[in-house]
Amino acid sequence: MAARVENLAAAVARALAGIGPIERDLDAADAQLGDGDTGGMIARVIGRMAATDLSEDRDMGVALTKLAKAAAAATGSSLGTLVATGFLTVGKAVKGREEVPWGEWGPLLATARDAMAARGGAALGDKTVLDGLDAVAEAIGAQDTREAVAAAALSAGRRSLVNFRDRPCRMGRARLHAERSVGRDDPGMLALVLLMEASLSPEAPAA
């Protein structure tokens, strides 16, 4: 059981299909302490990724790198650049392979998490998207089917939101509002969960 380029393309298409409410929810979450445009930014990223033609690609590395470039071209925001960094890192790691077994995605996400931490300067525990990614990477571990990976990832992502909700943000603009960030979801962590819900859930609309 392995992921192929068509799985990637389908996941992006499902994310795009569900982007309307995601955009609204993320804008609302960002408006609590930020300027309220994270949803619009993520919508641009997903839109640009979905417009990327992967139909002729077989190499997972090439496809992930194309998606990374699409994200990087869509925005210069911190979160968007971290997304691009994560895709680029995994793309490099699987370059030349047409299939990536589901059991490898935990370690691959951990590699992405580390590259994103190096690029952005956040540490685990700072209440950023890295904490959500860390929880997901650990939870999916060596799950070897798409269904098991999706279920473990969603569960871990949602749990990380709850676990961090009452903790203060220690990174970026939100660190300036540390006490006000308590009781609120970090928009980056929320984006990860909402996008996973759209792209991985069995009930998500098909591509």
Partner: peptide, 15 residues
């Protein structure tokens, strides 16, 4: 000068 969207950094390519 590389220019991003409003209150967003410029993209990597623009930089």
């Amino acid at each position: 000068c590389a220019i991003g969207n409003v209150f967003e950094g410029p993209t990597v390519n623009s930089c």
